[in-house]
Every structure is written in C-alpha cells, then in structure tokens.
C-alpha cells in the first residue's frame, strides 16, 4: 500500500504519526482513505476536489502536477509539500 508522509503541521490530526500506510490507486483515493481514518485531513489538503493551491504533491520523490487524478503505485511514497512555482503564486 502507498505510504503517505504526514507533514509535521498535519500530525495533530494523526496523533503525531509521521507516516501512514493507506490504500489507494490515485491521489484522490489516498486522500479519501486518509480522511476516513483521520477526519479533517481532506479539508487541509483539498479545495473543491482539487489539491489546494500552493501544495505540491511528490510521488516517490518526483514532483507531480498536483492533480488528485495522479495514479500511484502500490508501494508509492507520497509527500505533500509547499509548491515551488515560478514564484508568482503564494505558498500555502
């Protein structure tokens, strides 16, 4: 199952747990399953079924386009980090 690294600022929702193994073949499924176990997670990461502006999604160390439709391997490691754009956008 994919492993989600929980950013330190979200660990208040996971009782301090730093990473969570969670089912899901896409980022959307992963986030929904996280939300089911740790309510409040989705609203921190998503806005209207999209990843919030300013949050970047890394899968296996590679930056994705931050789409919730992104598919993930069974053993993927997922990170949610501040987005590094060209700089015109505000961070989260």
């Amino acid at each position: 199952m994919p492993i989600v690294a929980i950013p330190s600022l979200l660990r208040n929702l996971t009782n301090g747990k730093e990473s969570i193994t969670v089912r899901g073949a896409t980022i959307r499924e992963v986030i929904d399953n996280l939300e089911a176990r740790y309510p409040g997670m989705k609203v921190r990461l998503c806005e209207d079924d999209r990843i919030k502006p300013g949050i970047a999604v890394y899968v296996n160390g590679l930056l994705t386009r931050g789409s919730i439709l992104e598919s993930v391997d069974a053993d993927a490691e997922i990170h949610f980090l501040p987005a590094i754009g060209g700089g015109i956008a505000a961070p989260p």
Binding site: P7, S8, L9, E18, R44, I55, P82, A90, P91, P92
Partner: peptide, 21 residues
Amino acid sequence: TTSLGETAEEPSNVASHIQHK
C-alpha cells in the same frame, strides 16, 4: 496566517507558516 491548509483567526502580517520535521 495559514499553516498547511489551516487558517488562524486573528489578522496578521504573517501570511503563512511552514514546517518540516
């Protein structure tokens, strides 16, 4: 101030706080 999707109540000049641990 927002901290990874969470927004504080009081207005501030601090727009956001990020943390890596």
